[in-house]
C-alpha cells in the first residue's frame, strides 16, 4: 500500500509531529469509485455527534439542521488545515469536496432537534 507521510506540520506548540505509523492517502484516489451517499458518510459521524448528528447536550457540536454553506466552509477549512484542531482536521481530510457537500446536504435536511424528539423516518 502506498504510504504517504506528511511531515510538514509546523505547529506552534509542543512536540506536534505525526507518528511513525500514520498513513494518509488523498481522497482523490477514490474519486472514480461509485459515490458514497451523504447518509452513509454522515452516519459515520454519529458516534461523536449523535444519531443523525442530533446530540445537543455534548461538547461535540450537533450537525443536525446545520446550515449547508457553514458546514461546507468548516469542513473545507479543516481539510485544508487552515489552523490546527483537536481532531477534525484529521477527520475531514479523508473526504473529497463532493463528499463534504453530500454530507452537508444530508445534515442540513435533518431538523435541529434532539434525536429523542425526532421521528424515525
Amino acid at each position: 500500500m502506498k504510504r504517504i507521510l506528511l511531515l510538514n506540520l509546523l505547529l506552534t506548540i509542543g512536540l506536534n509531529a505525526w507518528a511513525e505509523s500514520d498513513i494518509f492517502i488523498p481522497p482523490e484516489r477514490y474519486a472514480k469509485d461509485p459515490a458514497v451517499s451523504g447518509r452513509v458518510l454522515g452516519d459515520n459521524c454519529s458516534a461523536c455527534h449523535g444519531t443523525r448528528g442530533a446530540v445537543f447536550d455534548e461538547s461535540m457540536p450537533p450537525l443536525a439542521g446545520m446550515d449547508r454553506d457553514t458546514f461546507i466552509k468548516l469542513m473545507k477549512d479543516f481539510k485544508n488545515e487552515v489552523r490546527p484542531t483537536i481532531v477534525m482536521n484529521d477527520v475531514a481530510k479523508a473526504y473529497t469536496d463532493e463528499e463534504i457537500e453530500r454530507m452537508a446536504d444530508y445534515f442540513s435536511s435533518i431538523p435541529a432537534l434532539p434525536w429523542k424528539k425526532q421521528t424515525l423516518h
Binding site: P62, M66, D67, T70, K73, D77
Partner: peptide, 8 residues
C-alpha cells in the same frame, strides 16, 4: 472569536 457556526 468570531464563531464559525451556530454552536458556540
Amino acid at each position: 472569536g468570531y464563531a464559525p457556526s451556530r454552536n458556540a
